[in-house]
């Protein structure tokens, strides 16, 4: 049962992409098509504030607590997924 829960709440790249899209405004343009896993967030148009907004939405939607220092070593979506899923697994 707990395995099933973990599978449900683990953040997938599709979840992340959808959250990143929803954090951008309608008047903004973000291109998250294709393989973004190893793209730098800045190349995708996400600066540190936009990334914090993304993390805040992940915390809210997935009920996981992420500290402010979580982004110190995060440069790509792959990095962020690893950090978030570690926190989810530890919860």
């Amino acid at each position: 049962m707990s395995d099933a829960n973990t599978a449900v709440t683990e953040l997938s790249v599709e979840d992340l992409t959808s959250i990143m899209r929803s954090s951008a405004g309608e008047d903004e343009s973000v291109d998250l098509d294709g393989d973004i896993l190893d793209s730098a967030f800045t190349d995708l148009g996400y600066d540190s504030l936009a990334l914090l907004e993304t993390v805040a939405r992940i915390s809210r939607d997935h009920g996981v607590e992420l500290g402010d220092d979580v982004l110190d070593d995060v440069e790509t979506p792959r990095d962020l997924l690893a950090v978030v899923n570690r926190a989810i697994a530890a919860a």
Partner: peptide
């Protein structure tokens, strides 16, 4: 790359 990230949006 702060201004670049803004511009990319």
């Amino acid at each position: 790359q702060g201004l670049t990230a803004l511009a990319k949006r």
